[in-house]
Simulated scan of single mutants.
Amino acid sequence: MKKKMKVSFLLVILLCSGWSVLAQQELKVRVLNQYESSVGQFTLIQGQESKEFVADKEGHVLLPLDSLQEVLITAPMYDTLRFSYAGLSADKTVVMEKSFEWKDLLNPMFYIVMGGLWIILLIVFAETGLFAGFFLPGDSLLFVAGIYSTNLINELFKSFGLVLERSEWIDLILLVTLISIAGVIGNTVGYWFGRKIGPTMFRWKDNFFFKKHYLEQAHEFYDKHGGGAIVFARFLPIVRTFAPIIAGIVGMDKKKFAFYNIAGCIAWVFSMIFAGHFLQKWVKAQFGFDLKDHLEVIIIIIVLVTTAPVLIKLVSGGKKRKEKGEG
């Protein structure tokens, strides 16, 4: 009898210790916002207890495992989220909804999440067609669009109720074609605007959407490079917004403008989309990490590379104006 009691007692101890081990287990979870960026610091509320956690740059963090209970997760500027570990997807990702901030307008993922391909087409058109889109993230947006090319085309087809099997090449060609058309139309609108009322723009006052020195800078760029400026301008933020307007102001031949316009748009869109798509595949195959996990760094690099010539021009131009003023 005593032996049975000892055995039973040992079994109880083992079971209790087993539950204790399970309670101490941790689960690797990824905590992201809707733009696929790491949430960073957040608070996990489980029952009456709350604890602070910090996710890494990819959003990964170890959380205490309790599949029998729902938990709350909160963070500044985020909506509170309730979830259970058992209800997580296979990749163990938790997506929190981030509140809007004005700086989100500089994040390409904001536009992809909010409107997909439709809003990308509008932005590419607006950069030149509305001459007020110089602050929009054109280059980085197209690069990121190349990474998400299949997703974007899938959403486009679904909006028309179409379900078709396609290869990655078809998706890329469709994406390049549609965005190039939007760019060509935008440049054409800018060109006709320049022909009609462009000269009066040099007498406009500066405001948030219009800066006279940007127009003057584009004029200098056009004088230096001629028709090729329409092609080169596509790769330069700010300059590409005003280059077609300058072409209209100086009365560039319509056929000549159309040629450079189409060539420049296709070259710009093709290079950005294909760079994003295939660089993502190459990096993942060679180094084993996903560019989607490092979009913030990539965007910063693209912005620095594409805006460097413009910034250098602005600085050197400012110095020249000061020297002339002193003289």
Rank of each mutant, 00 (worst) to 15 (best):
M5C: 10
C16Y: 09
S17C: 15
V21S: 00
E26N: 02
V29F: 02
V31C: 05
N33T: 13
Q34W: 11
Q34M: 13
S38M: 12
G40H: 05
F42I: 12
L44I: 00
K51I: 12
E58Q: 14
L62V: 05
L62S: 07
L63T: 02
P64N: 01
V71G: 01
V71E: 01
V71H: 03
L72F: 01
L72P: 00
D79V: 08
D79L: 11
A86Y: 09
G87R: 13
A90Q: 09
A90W: 05
D91N: 14
D91S: 10
M96Q: 11
K98R: 06
E101D: 12
K103D: 05
K103N: 04
L106Q: 08
N107M: 07
F110G: 02
M114W: 13
I120F: 04
V124G: 06
F125G: 03
F125C: 03
T128P: 08
G133V: 07
F134E: 07
L136C: 05
G138A: 05
G138Q: 06
V144N: 03
G146W: 02
E155A: 09
E168F: 05
L172G: 01
L175S: 00
S180K: 05
I181W: 01
A182E: 07
V184Y: 11
I185L: 12
G186P: 12
K196Q: 14
P199S: 05
F202R: 09
R203F: 15
F209H: 00
F210T: 00
K212R: 01
E216K: 15
G227C: 10
G228R: 10
V231K: 09
V231S: 11
F232W: 12
R234A: 12
F235S: 05
F235M: 06
L236G: 05
L236N: 09
I238G: 04
R240G: 00
T241N: 04
F242S: 04
A243D: 14
P244T: 03
I245Q: 04
I246L: 12
A247V: 06
G248R: 10
F259Y: 11
I262L: 14
A263P: 08
I266F: 05
V269C: 03
V269A: 02
M272P: 13
I273T: 00
A275C: 05
F278E: 04
Q280H: 13
A285N: 13
A285D: 13
F287E: 01
F289R: 02
I299Q: 14
T307E: 12
A308W: 13
I312H: 09
S316P: 08
K319M: 15
K320P: 09
R321S: 03
